[in-house]
Design a protein around this nucleic acid. Structure first.
Length: 417
RNA sequence: GGAGGAAUAGCGAAGUGGCCAAACGCAGCUGACUGUAAAUCAGUUCCUUCGGGUUCGGUGGUUCAAAUCCGCCUUCCUCCA
């Protein structure tokens, strides 16, 4: 099974600029590029689909280039956005760019430039003067054409600035530059990137000749079968940075995937072979309550993103929190289990409501009061309904810890010094 | 450059002088049920020392009383040039 068939079988690919051409190109080692937008300081699971795709392509021998958009990030990609956005300042963009580079390097093989590299488009875009830009590139873009692009057309009613309107031309220059400097003939992106990918193809063919072999294809956006937005957890998106989304939270998110989505996601996110997935799916559907696919999915994802060690940590935590009695753990086990959990250290007694607010279980004392009244707060396994309860050191486990649970799944730790 | 319109909580959107801490929908959170699910039902979503305090783009006014009226500013939209 060649790589293209495999990607199709996994349900990854949405559109091709030209399927035959892509197929032909992928038969021989190619240089393939994908851009990443530094609009946040960490990438999320949606970006991870693109990263994993680069990994898959790299594994079968293609050279991959991850472009971090230090320049394009300064302008703002209108794709998928219904409103004009505020610009990020240069400092934020620069620090985000560095953060993304660091994240990408964890997943991609960069040991030598013939296998893969990460580059920043600021390096070349920032050197182009406005006159050169308009003469060398601007001349090749037709406004009529650009107005027809879905991204722009959908914004004409609400308004779009010249900056965002022009964004696509800059990304096109990126593709042209990579084609010239690295022989890059393929660009991939999320389905919202379609307009930007075709801009690049158009520009290259206009400048380098219509016979130039370049192509692009896009991935499906990940959806959930209930129609809700994928990858949104309590604290916003599912980030790859473990400071922003703990490995435990990531695991729990995927463990709670619906039955059908679990199998779908195994194909999309994991590197298990399709045969293995087929086998897992069979067992999965034979006893749905066991959530076999969800468990494999969650484990695989945590392993890929955070590593085997973190996964073991997470599995221990999950087991302790959901099956065992927390009060029976030894002090050492408890410390291991709660390593990745939000915690505060205090000296002296503290009111329960203040503790809930300080540890992040509630965003205000009013909310803390609401949780206590609803009976959703447990301390060391005991439900507390007294609004005036005080947490004291003598009630703490091992004279040290109090485990606060909010609702069914949220844990926090109070440490008495 | 000119004329008109808009800005309300996480998002969408009512409200056009007091009954507005602000309808409704979405989303979130909590409880019940369950498979740590989905669906469903119920509660809840500015802060508080529970006296009250601070909100409706910003600011200054009018009024006993302003999200609501007036002036100025900012941002956005539409049309004209």
């Amino acid at each position: 099974m060649n790589i293209l068939d495999e990607l199709n079988a996994r349900g990854l690919i949405k559109d091709f600029s030209n399927e035959e051409e892509v197929k032909e190109l992928l038969d021989t080692p190619q240089t393939i590029y994908c851009g990443f937008d530094p609009s946040a300081k960490s990438m999320h699971m949606g970006n991870f689909v693109m990263i994993s795709l680069l990994m898959r392509l790299q594994r079968v021998g293609h050279r991959i280039i991850a472009v971090v958009g230090g320049a394009t990030g300064m302008i703002g990609d209108p794709s998928g956005k219904s409103h004009e956005r505020n610009l990020l300042d240069a400092k934020t963009t620069a620090s985000n760019t560095e953060a993304l580079k660091k994240q990408l390097s964890r997943f991609l093989n960069l040991e030598d430039a013939s296998k893969g590299m990460i580059i920043n488009n600021y390096d070349w875009i920032s050197k182009i003067s406005i006159i050169d830009y308009l003469r060398d590139y601007g001349k090749y873009f037709s406004i009529n054409n650009m107005l027809n692009k879905e991204v722009v057309a959908s914004r004409l009613a609400n308004g779009i600035s010249f900056a965002e309107f022009s964004y696509t031309t800059i990304q096109a220059v990126d593709f042209l530059t990579l084609y010239r400097n690295y022989g890059c003939r393929l660009q991939i992106g999320g389905s919202d990137q379609w307009g930007n990918l075709t801009s690049g193809l158009d520009l290259i063919k206009k400048i380098e000749g219509p016979e130039t072999k370049v192509a692009a294809f896009t991935m499906h956006l990940i959806t959930k079968s209930d129609g809700k937005k994928f990858g949104k957890s309590e604290d916003g998106a599912l980030f790859l940075d473990k400071e922003m989304t703990s490995p435990y939270a990531l695991y729990q998110y995927f463990l709670n995937t619906s039955d059908d989505d679990a199998v779908k996601y195994l194909k999309i996110f994991t590197f298990l072979s399709l045969d293995e997935i087929e086998k897992i799916a069979k067992e999965h559907y034979a006893s749905l309550g066991q959530r076999i696919a969800q468990k494999v999915l969650a484990s695989e994802i945590v392993k890929i993103i955070h590593g085997e060690e973190e996964l073991n940590q997470v599995l221990k935590m999950t087991e302790a929190l959901f099956s065992g009695n927390i009060n029976e753990l030894t002090k050492e086990q408890l410390e291991i289990v709660f390593k990745g959990i939000k915690k505060i250290s205090i000296s002296g007694d503290i009111g329960l409501l203040d503790a809930l607010k300080d540890v992040g279980a509630a965003s205000s004392k009013r909310e803390a009061r609401e949780f206590v009244t609803n009976g959703s707060i447990l301390v060391n396994g005991n439900k507390i309904t007294d609004l005036d309860a005080i947490l004291t050191k003598k009630d703490a486990l091992f004279n040290c810890y109090q485990i606060v649970r909010r609702g069914k799944k949220n844990y926090y730790l109070i440490e008495h010094l």
